[in-house]
Amino acid sequence: MKFLAISGSARKISTNTAMLRAVSAMVRPDHAVCVFDGISDLPVFSPDLEAHSLPEPVQNFAAKIKSCDGLIIASPEYVRAIPGGLKNAIDWLVSRDEIINKPIVLMHASHRGDDMLAQIRIVLSTVSTQFADDLFLRFDLMKKTPFEIEEHLNLPANRLKVSEFVQNFAALCGQ
């Protein structure tokens, strides 16, 4: 199975991106998890830009989504809401076919963020017929370095949680 793991953070040293990279390294070779950390590269969504050839970063983003079996999204909460960059990325997909039937699950790298999670659940259940709200994995990784995140996820109990999460997602995607 090939999964695209989308980080909703625009930060270079993002906790969510580090978590997704650690998961990607852990699940190989059984599954391929490609991390997309280019949210900040996407131009601001405008329906006017859809009338012509899409901007190249949007074309590349949509192609990555089209070619994967499922999406794993991990995002911080900004001011009790979905970060603008992630919402912008989703807005680019609303009128496109790539996301409609794509299985989607959430991961979260904080003990906080429930307001953002509630909002993104509403948005994702609107844009995809296969958003799996009940399949969710959360770790408290705030203020950890990427190395510490990798170490934490590689603890046997956490490694098992990641493995079960990915296996359940693969089953949902039809493997």
Rank of each mutant, 00 (worst) to 15 (best):
D48C: 06
D97Q: 15
L20D: 00
A89G: 03
A32E: 15
T129M: 10
A5S: 11
N158C: 03
M19F: 03
F45E: 08
F136S: 06
A170W: 01
R138S: 14
H108C: 05
R121C: 13
L20I: 00
S40G: 12
Y78N: 07
I99N: 05
M107V: 06
N168S: 15
E98I: 10
A109H: 03
Q175D: 04
M142F: 12
R11T: 03
V33F: 02
F3D: 00
R138G: 09
L137A: 13
P146S: 03
D115T: 14
V79W: 12
W92F: 08
S163L: 07
R159W: 10
N154W: 10
D140S: 15
C68H: 09
I99P: 05
P156L: 09
V35N: 02
L124E: 02
V35I: 08
A25V: 06
K144E: 08
F36R: 09
P103T: 00
V58Q: 06
I120E: 05
E50M: 13
I100W: 13
I73L: 09
L71S: 04
D133Y: 12
L86D: 05
P29Q: 02
V27T: 04
D97I: 14
C68Y: 02
E150Q: 11
S67V: 13
S75H: 09
H111V: 05
A62F: 12
G174R: 05
A51P: 08
H31I: 00
P47E: 06
T145M: 07
T145W: 11
S75D: 07
I72N: 08
V123C: 01
S7M: 11
S75G: 05
V162G: 06
E98H: 13
I120P: 10
S7E: 11
M26V: 03
Q119L: 14
P29C: 02
E77H: 02
P146V: 03
V23A: 06
S24N: 09
D140P: 15
I65P: 14
L4I: 11
V27E: 00
V27A: 00
D114R: 11
A170C: 14
A32D: 14
R96Q: 07
A10G: 04
L137K: 12
D114Y: 10
R96M: 02
M142S: 13
A171F: 09
G85N: 10
V58W: 03
M26L: 10
K144L: 15
L153H: 11
E151D: 12
N158S: 01
V166P: 07
V105K: 08
T15S: 07
I104D: 00
A25N: 12
V162M: 06
H108S: 09
S14A: 06
H152C: 05
A170G: 08
E151K: 10
P103D: 01
I82Q: 00
R112S: 08
S7V: 12
V23G: 01
D114E: 14
E164P: 02
S53W: 12
